[in-house]
């Protein structure tokens, strides 16, 4: 178990960095080259109209499925973070229950084109208009704004990998059984990030990244608020056709 005793040797930190970068690359759902190549493949007027004509429950279900696919890649990422599988299953679930959506939102900035404010969805790039029938305009604007702000940091894939792991390994989550262990994991990840930023001569990024955490938390609670609003109007839909993993995480 790499966390007993608690090495802080540089070799350990560099090995930890490499392992997290590899985990991110192996579980990133869309390759960066693929996204870059498709960035100008936009939805046509007719395709946009088709999305906007979906009923609210159809669009909610469709987006819940897409979100759940993204979350599954984040679960695989978590499993590959050294020490994560050494945690008790309840703590692994506690970290993922809130952290998975946050990592999805961080990763979304890889799929975002700031030049025309579009996001990669269903194989093409679309604006917030694409999601009009969800009835969650404020949430979508907030999510797109967040993507813009993360893109503005121009993170490398390695930096995004480290930041994603820090978002996930959060010792402040309520109901953790072994908070100390999560804290020790988190400390080594923080050392990794500052080591990496020093190497990249971008130490100012550290503070900007930590500032993103509170925005992430507000986006996640806004999502849960919207889900609550939707499931009151369509309780059967959520119960019968929403992905089971989505329900486990968010209801």
């Amino acid at each position: 178990d790499p966390y007993c005793p608690y090495p802080t040797s540089l070799l350990h930190i560099e090995e930890l960095c490499d392992s997290i970068v590899r985990s991110h690359r192996d579980t990133s759902q869309f390759r960066l080259e693929e996204l870059q190549a498709l960035r100008w493949k936009l939805f046509s007027r007719e395709e946009l109209h088709a999305y906007q004509s979906k009923s609210v429950d159809e669009m909610w279900q469709h987006c819940a499925v897409r979100l759940t696919e993204a979350v599954q890649y984040v679960v695989e990422f978590a499993k590959r973070i050294p020490g994560f599988r050494g945690l008790g299953q309840n703590d692994q679930i506690t970290l993922l229950k809130t952290g998975s959506m946050e990592v999805v939102l961080v990763r979304m900035s890889r799929c975002f084109n700031t030049e025309n404010s579009t996001v990669f969805f269903d194989g093409k790039f679309g604006s917030t208009e694409l999601f009009k029938s969800l009835g969650c305009g404020d949430l979508m604007v907030a999510v797109f704004d967040f993507a813009h702000s993360v893109c503005a940091l121009r993170l490398t894939e390695q930096q995004m990998a480290l930041f994603s792991s820090l978002v996930l390994i959060n010792p402040d989550r309520p109901c953790l059984e072994d908070r100390g262990r999560v804290h020790r994991m988190r400390r080594d990840l923080e050392v990794c990030l500052s080591h990496m930023l020093r190497r990249d001569n971008q130490e100012s990024l550290q503070h900007k990244l930590y500032q993103k955490v509170s925005v992430l938390q507000s986006l996640c609670s806004l999502h849960v608020e919207k889900l609550h609003w939707f499931s009151q109007r369509y309780p059967l839909i959520v119960h019968s056709v929403f992905p089971p993993l989505y329900k486990e995480l968010f209801t």
Binding site: V75, K79, R85, Q89, Q92, I93, K97, E248
Partner: peptide
């Protein structure tokens, strides 16, 4: 309670 998540976590990271 988290049946699916338990199963995903138990699967090997092949």
């Amino acid at each position: 309670k988290h049946k699916i998540l338990h199963r995903l976590l138990q699967n090997s990271t092949s």
